[in-house]
Design a protein around this nucleic acid. Structure first.
Lengths: 210, 210
DNA sequence: TTGCATACATTCAGTTTTGTATGTATAATC
DNA sequence: GATTATACATACAAAACTGAATGTATGCAA
């Protein structure tokens, strides 16, 4: 049974990526042999080497899945469909947590990237890539906080850039905590409080902007 | 040249731990063979197996070094030698950054724990241990913020427990950022702004409490 | 100063993993 | 309907790593 149709071939590829994710999550990236991934996927190493050059490329293919899922909500932060830019930030953070809650595979990939991968050797460049979302979020936060300040939604005497850093640190820590402790309610309460801390007088007690 | 004096033996042990730290940092924990550590330390694997049962125990020995350095400043946060508890929190965070700046070996160990170790198999319990400082910091922050609220240093309408979580998330993200981007000045400015955000009227513009 | 435990070095056997090379049935192409 | 490229499975060789077993010179205690 070889030489599948294109649809079957694609299913094999997806199956390998899926098996890799589960294996990486259970055994860690470096301790996961291609043989183990193959067994989980129900194929042999030959199939893996056909679809991917080596374990590193397979890892990258797996990572792209999570990126596709999360890149969209980042850019939603810049949209103008809420009056108060602070609400956009709040919504972004809440959606991030929501994704972790609803999509176990994305969550697994996040956990692999955080605690089951060693960023050395050929994986060293991956760390820079893994930190890219953080850089993106920071620059977007700067824009949105600036906008909030200009419109009087940000509490006076607060510097937009400094607030951007503070919220970026907050989101990193929140992500870590949520993944390790699985306290979704705590996360949501923390997000609302974090944003409320910097709301200006203009509509400090009127969160009906969303 | 075998059967050293006790002093020489101890130096050998320290040398092995030192070599392990450098090797773990450069090659990652799982890719570092005991043979490689031995070569860096200028001994053979025999010496390592004499002092440590296996790589895992050697890893734990290395980790204890960093713990000894950082555990003290945590408890300083509870001391009463500053009037304003918020200043104690600020000082704690600043000291944490200071340690990273001044002690390269501690910094290396932090980087190993964050990005060069896979917490699976016999290393899975290490993750729980690695998260212990975070739990400790959270419970201390709760106490100190509560104290600040009682004494009127915390901005009214801010819940001490929620603030504890916010600052814990902040410190996690700050640590990540400082280790990856090496922006010490940015870190210090962020810390001061983070604390200033929650100072009450009582001495909002009087940071001379330290 | 004899004897023993120490602090390693050296050697060995066994397993695991990787990349590649080769075999092969079949879908696609003409 | 013959040919060809595809999509794997199978087999092989080489390297790396580990744990344990053994060898050994010497500091130290009696």
């Amino acid at each position: 049974m070889v030489r599948k149709t294109k649809a079957e071939t694609e299913r094999t590829r997806i199956g390998i990526i899926d098996a890799a994710r589960r294996a990486f999550h259970e055994f860690g990236v470096s301790r996961t042999s291609l043989e183990k991934i193959a067994r989980i996927a129900g194929v042999t190493r030959g199939a893996i080497y056909w679809h991917f050059k080596n374990k590193t490329e397979l890892f990258h293919a797996m990572r792209e899945q999570a990126l596709n899922h999360t890149s969209q909500i980042k850019f939603d932060m810049l949209s103008e469909d809420v009056q108060n830019p602070l609400d956009a930030i709040e919504r972004f953070l809440l959606e991030l947590i929501e994704i972790l809650k609803n999509d176990p595979s994305v969550r697994q990939i996040f956990e692999i990237m955080l605690w089951r991968c060693e960023y050395v050797g050929e994986f060293a460049p991956v760390l820079y890539e893994a930190l890219r979302p953080r850089r993106d979020i920071l620059s977007m936060l700067k824009i949105v906080y600036e906008r909030a300040a200009n419109r009087g939604f940000l509490r006076p005497a607060l510097d937009p850039e400094v607030m951007a850093y503070d919220t970026m640190f907050f989101s990193t820590g929140l992500l870590n905590f949520t993944l390790s402790a699985d306290r979704l309610l705590q996360a949501q309460e923390s997000i609302r409080a974090h944003i409320a801390l910097r709301r200006g007088d203009r509509r400090a007690n009127d969160p009906s902007g969303g």
